[in-house]
Nucleic acid binder design. Structure first.
Length: 581
RNA sequence: GCCCUCGUAGCUCAGGGGAUAGAGCAACCGCCUCCUAAGCGGUUGGUCCCAGGUUCGAAUCCUGGCGAGGGCGCCA
């Protein structure tokens, strides 16, 4: 199971720890070229500079407005090889490069930076393209089938704040990858099989419980009682173990109770997903139990290929680079969770046709997934052409900096978190606060869970983005009421605030592509926050409805575009964009 | 013992070879007769854990420490 049935409920599953190497998307030169191609303006500038520099000018967005729009430090790097002062090299490059149709006269600054400022009409045209493009600059890539394994709660347990990360991150990545034209198949690897069902079923029988009357909270309490019972009573533990065997051998009475537990849990999950507004449906369910019938075949294939060997009574696979073998089948004949994950890889490649498989699971399982991938490669379940990536994320810590644990009373149910958020703001806004708080942190690091901060609606938060959007909607409603002419294109960019906004608009597409490649949602958050911030400045400094003529039409065009990009971006984060608030 | 990750402002976090290291929160000072103040502007606040190395240039890359966390054959 993705979720650990034994550990503390909160931090149980994915405990975390960052994943640097494995979580970071491999840099494919081909992809990079594609990304560059999609933001045509910087790409063109880059090519022109490269033509005279001979090397990639590593064009970057300017770090400050006074440095123009783009900057290159290529002269600094060339200076040594050429044996000339950097500023001199920069001067030569600037003189030789053919940039005049796109840029103002380039400036050479500091030790030898080349600062480029786009001609206003070029920037305006670029912003206008974003306005006209229904996709706002997000370019579809060569289509891949991407399987994303995320959420994965455990049966008979309520979802808690620790589950938020996998669910929210996976949902965001699914949206982003779809927007990039990929076929995304979500897989909810719920923990619906395994040892814990032995004790659950026995506890139900002991208590003569009417399972159908339970809700998920009730099931969770049952789980606790069963767990305590299991630990305290060896006789009960024995029965539980025998019950597991019954379950696995298909005993009808046992299966009937098991199914009831599943149904209760699914109802609870549905409720949570609906409340969160994530895309997961029943069609995405692919719990551990669904691989049960595949396990013997997986084992047979592993043995046939010679990958698996019997060691100390267990069937294991040794892989180079791992200090412990993967246990496929335990000494007692039961299958380890690795076997299930291998079966999942096999099905995702063979039946689902995956070109890329993502596992949104806490980083504490980095070792496990790397091993699964290695074994799957060795066994032939995972061909070279299929990418497999563990999108590991850090664990959720309490304000004391320690892992949040149920037993310490530090945990919080997902429902309680959402309730708390809704005490502060209306539902869509509360949800935005919670989701953004999670998505805006980089994945690799653990993060401190602080309820007050999580439900905050001011500052660098989801509601801030929504607010910018809502303001624009209001402004555009007024414009419509006044029958103001909204420009089809952005034509006037005299004010710095307008330019900043226009430039940011042209970066939406590349930002989304970057998230698709690096699988780091916080980059999209950062971009949108910057855009919303630029909008606020623009809003303060540039009257729209109170301006006139072409300026007004152009500013309205800018407003429409920003509104659309904010809405599109929020949608990719899985956050609603209300028209007013 | 071995492996992995993290260490940036009082707090929570961005930045991950280039210009005086950025946000938010907290604190303090301003701004609504003016398109939504869930906003904007400003002030205060930093040995980028430490030490070496590579480089024209290191918060960023490498090595070694220190500190925190995670993982390491029959839990998942």
């Amino acid at each position: 199971m993705r979720d650990d049935g034994h550990g503390p409920i909160l931090a149980d599953r994915p405990k975390s720890g960052p994943v640097r190497r494995s979580g970071r998307a491999p840099e494919h030169p081909a992809l990079r070229g594609r990304m560059a191609a999609m933001s045509s303006l910087p790409h063109t500038l880059s090519e022109r500079l490269q033509a005279v520099a001979g090397v990639d000018p590593e064009l970057r967005a300017a770090t400050k407005p006074q440095f123009g729009h783009f900057q290159s430090n290529v002269a600094l790097r060339l200076a040594k090889a050429e044996g000339r002062p950097p500023r001199e090299v920069a001067q030569r490059l600037v003189e030789q490069a053919d940039l005049s149709d796109l840029c103002e006269t380039p400036e050479i600054a500091g030790p030898g930076f080349i600062n480029l400022r786009l001609r206003t009409e070029v920037l305006a045209a670029a912003a206008s393209e974003v306005r006209a493009d229904p996709r706002h600059g997000v370019e579809p890539q060569p289509t891949q089938t991407v399987v994303i394994d995320y959420s994965a709660p455990n049966v008979a347990k309520q979802m808690h704040v620790g589950h938020l990360r996998s669910t929210i991150i996976g949902d965001c990545l699914a949206r982003v990858l779809r927007a990039l034209g990929h076929t995304v198949i979500a897989q909810n690897h719920i923990g619906d099989w395994g040892r814990q069902f032995g004790m659950l079923v026995e506890q139900i029988l002991d208590e003569q419980l009417d399972v159908a009357a339970l809700d998920l909270a009730g099931a969770e309490e049952l789980y606790r009682r069963a767990n305590d019972h299991f630990k305290a009573d060896e006789t009960f533990a024995d029965r539980a173990r025998r019950r597991v065997v019954l379950l696995q051998s298909g005993d009808e009475d046992t299966l009937a109770i098991w199914r009831q537990l599943i149904d209760i849990s699914l109802a609870g999950f549905h409720e949570a997903y609906a409340r969160l507004g994530v895309l997961l449906t029943d069609a995405d369910l692919a719990g551990e139990s669904t691989y049960n019938d595949d396990l013997p075949r997986v084992v047979a294939e592993l043995e046939a290929s010679g990958a698996a060997v019997v060691d100390d009574g267990a069937l294991v696979v040794f892989v180079e680079g791992f200090n412990a073998p993967m246990i496929v089948r335990k000494r007692d004949g039961g299958f380890g969770y690795s076997a299930t994950d291998l079966a999942a890889v096999r099905r995702r490649v063979g039946e689902l046709g995956a070109d890329r498989i993502l596992y949104v699971v806490g980083s504490e399982q980095t070792f496990h997934f790397n091993q699964v991938f290695a074994v799957a490669r060795k066994a032939g379940f995972l061909p070279e052409r299929v990418q497999a990536e563990h999108v590991g994320y850090g664990m959720v810590l309490g304000t004391d900096g320690k892992r949040l644990r149920t037993r310490d009373g530090g945990t919080m149910k997902l429902a309680d978190l959402l309730d708390a958020a809704e005490e502060r703001a209306a539902r869509p806004i509360a949800l935005a606060a919670v989701k953004y708080a999670d998505l805006s942190n980089s994945l690799v690091k653990d993060y401190v869970f602080d309820l007050d901060r999580m439900v905050q609606t001011v500052g660098d938060t989801g509601p801030y983005l929504q607010y910018a959007h809502a303001r624009l909607c209001q402004l555009l409603r007024r414009a419509e009421a006044e029958q103001a002419q909204v420009g089809e294109a952005v034509t006037v960019l005299d004010e710095p605030a307008e330019q900043t906004l226009a430039l940011l608009l042209t970066r939406f597409g590349e930002t989304v592509a970057e998230v698709g490649q690096t699988l780091q949602p916080h980059r999209l958050c950062a971009y949108l926050y910057e855009l919303a911030g630029a909008l606020s400045v623009f809003y303060e400094q540039c009257p729209v409805l109170r301006s006139e003529g072409e300026v007004r039409a152009s500013r309205l065009a800018l407003c429409v575009t920003v509104r659309d990009v904010l809405a599109a971006g929020l949608d990719l984060l899985g956050i609603e964009a209300p028209d007013r608030m």
